[in-house]
Write a protein that binds this DNA or RNA. Structure first.
Lengths: 335, 335
DNA sequence: TTGAAAGCGCTAACAT
DNA sequence: ATGTTAGCGCTTTCAA
């Protein structure tokens, strides 16, 4: 009756009961309901660390999609960074924690799970056999029978390369992340493809390997500028900041003497002068895609074959990019 | 038996059963358990928007405390910003959403609730009479019978004032937030107290009102520098960035020609050159305090009188602050 | 010591 | 069209 389904007992009486319920602030007990129905309409989310900057946006995306489909979400936060001082990840403790989160979500009868990594890498932990649908976000499983959702690093980097070349740059320095980083590898591939396709010769000396820190960006920039590059593409915004610092110490003006491109489109981009061009990672969209995949699998509305999705990124071309100094060429920068 | 409580059936048999359970991946059903026990050992968290920068740290703090006490948390995210284009807050829609979140958490049998605002302000929405314990974080309720947890804006600002005065500054510009902002009001009070206590005359012309944006920081800085201030205290880091931009356009060097202090200690602080001094808001600690208050009330282990907690902030004095240009005085800046 | 049974609040299937 | 009942998976009580 109170769920609105059963036929009326005469409109008058029904209204009376409903009023009483409202005034008593009656709320059906979800626990009992789900216990009875034996389905929770709930998707579990395991986050490696909720306080890492990209995680909340992904959660938000999952939530928004689930809400549209009448599903709830329940969050299980590993707190990897807070729990251990540094990135003590992929250790036995991490494995134990993973296990615990999994059991906890299973106990809550979730119908599917999304696992959100704090940075893109191969995750050794897998759900147990016979588990509910399981999707990896911002990371990739060591066993490809599970789907994963990431962003299209390679193509974004290709676009960055094209944009710099189109402005007239031929000597473009790259400040990569560490060689082992899957992100860095993909970004390098995309960038090289842009050079290749444009017929620009690749100079390996123009690619330096930083460690994502601003300090390393500054050091690499100094080296690259010495080599005479007219543009620098740093694989994250923090290192791009380092390039800015290097320029200011050398008396160079970014966006005139040197063009700079970053990655992540963090809030610092607009705080810098001139604003830093950067690649925006489609975090919300990734979340929504994860949710779509999980719900598909839950409802078996699509074939079960695992997929590796790569959502396209968005380029923000800003005043930090301009034609190289010598030639007063082509198009003015947007934004 | 499986919960380890009931006496043994002989160690051998017990072990056998436990093994079987483990191999079948048996996990007690939380729904059924909580339904039976009629207590969930769960605290609900309502966030106005999880993607606002300060929210995840507060959630993390609540989580860490709850975990220590054997409580779980369940998150209800209003997604205020995503749902409505801009800050359509404190509207009928917001009220309806609040109501819905509340009912949802009640249906899940949470034993207490923490409400996290996205910025500090008075919240008109109250839990219904007879609700479970309810705490406000990063905001304050319109009815003071509920406890709230915030940070000690006034004192932090007092310390900033003291630090600048101690460096020898007497003409200190302030770029405040909007007049209506409770944060801005408290920060102004604290700063003025520092002046007063140090016997420095307050010049109302040195206080300008920005709108938290970098652009407004730049504009106000231009005006203040024209008036001859030797230091500028901006009420957030973004406006402090504006001050940096202004300096660079005027050929002034921050940390030498002009000292700058910010607020929020966002990651931009260390990306700027020189690094920006700033006030760190104790978000994690606020979360822990909220959790402590909720659990106290749940377990009636403390008196029920509502409290307004203000957690102390942490000052980061960096190279953006130095003695004023004329006098080659006193202490070198710490990092 | 061990086992059986009642009941948490709900829904769905079944009688009336 | 309405009322009754069985049972979801667990814990706790009570009986054997």
């Amino acid at each position: 009756m109170l769920n609105g389904k059963t036929g009326a007992a005469g409109p008058a009486k029904a209204k009376e009961i409903l009023n009483a319920a409202a005034s008593l602030n009656y709320q059906p007990n979800t626990l009992a309901k789900n216990l009875k129905l034996r389905r929770s309409r709930t998707v579990g989310i395991i986050t490696e660390d909720l306080t890492v900057f990209n995680t909340p946006e992904i959660v938000d995306g999952i939530e928004s999609f689930c809400e549209e489909q009448g599903y709830e979400i329940v969050l299980a936060n590993m707190r990897l960074f807070k729990r251990y001082d540094n990135d003590l990840t992929d250790t036995p403790e991490h494995a134990a924690l993973f296990e615990r989160m999994l059991r906890n979500l299973a106990a809550k009868q979730v119908e599917g799970i999304v696992y959100i990594g704090y940075h893109y890498r191969r995750i050794p932990h897998l759900p147990p056999a016979g588990s509910v649908p399981f999707i990896y976000a911002y990371c990739t499983p060591s066993d490809n029978q599970y789907s994963s959702v990431a962003f299209d690093d390679e193509n974004a980097s290709f676009q960055v390369g094209l944009a710099l070349i189109q402005q007239g740059h031929r000597k473009i320095g790259v400040i990569s992340g560490p060689m082992e980083s899957l992100n860095a590898q993909a970004r390098l591939r995309g960038f090289q493809r842009a050079l290749y396709q444009s017929g620009v010769l690749y100079n390996a000396g123009f690619t330096l390997y930083g460690d994502w820190s601003q300090e390393s960006g500054l050091l690499c920039a100094r080296e690259l500028i010495k080599q005479g590059v007219t543009a620098i593409y740093a694989f994250n915004d923090l290192m791009a900041c380092g390039v800015y610092l290097c320029c200011s110490s050398l008396g160079l003006t970014v966006g005139r003497d040197l063009s700079v491109f970053g990655y992540d489109n963090q809030n610092i981009c607009l705080a810098l002068s001139p604003p830093l061009s950067s690649v925006e990672v489609p975090l919300g969209e990734m979340g929504r895609r994860c949710a779509a995949l999980v719900l598909e699998q839950i409802n078996k509305s699509a074939d079960e074959s695992p997929r590796e999705c790569a959502i396209p990124c968005l380029l923000h071309l800003r005043a930090s990019v301009a034609p190289p100094p010598e030639k007063a060429a082509a198009a003015g920068p947007e934004n």
